[in-house]
């Protein structure tokens, strides 16, 4: 087993959970740089030990209100999904993970 990866079904299960928790702010323009990256540190039971916004500086940068709106929605999504239903094995694999929230597909359609 590749210890650096989740199996496809494990990844899909995680995605599916987060999809339902994430209310996309649909007023955001799809054309802007709207990628929010979050680093999660999880406990073995899937509850969140630590949440780090990787671009947190942007959150309070003037002119980046739209980014902040999106980042807020991401934070809410993760809180709402807490604890995550994690794979039953291989804690070391998913103890730390990065989630890339990209709303462009949702907003552009």
């Amino acid at each position: 087993m590749d210890y650096s990866k989740l199996t496809l079904s494990e990844e899909d299960a995680l995605k599916a959970q987060i999809f339902t928790c994430w209310s996309v702010p649909i007023g955001l323009p799809f054309s802007e740089d709207l990628l929010v990256r979050v680093k999660l540190q999880l406990k073995p039971d899937g509850s969140i030990e630590n949440l780090e916004m990787l671009d947190h500086v942007k959150m309070n940068t003037p002119g980046k209100e739209k980014f902040r709106t999106l980042a807020d929605s991401v934070r809410r999504a993760i809180q709402l999904c807490n604890p995550l239903k994690v794979p039953t094995s291989g804690y070391e694999r998913w103890k730390n993970m990065i989630l890339n929230f990209d709303a462009r597909d949702m907003l552009g359609g």
């Binding site: 989740l6 990065i98 949702m106």
Partner: peptide, 20 residues
């Protein structure tokens, strides 16, 4: 670079459009 640290990355490209 993330791969090098063997950190899992998951792309979340869908969410719900339910009223908040």
């Amino acid at each position: 670079s993330a791969k090098a640290y063997s950190l899992i990355e998951i792309d979340i490209t869908r969410g719900n459009l339910d009223p908040l």
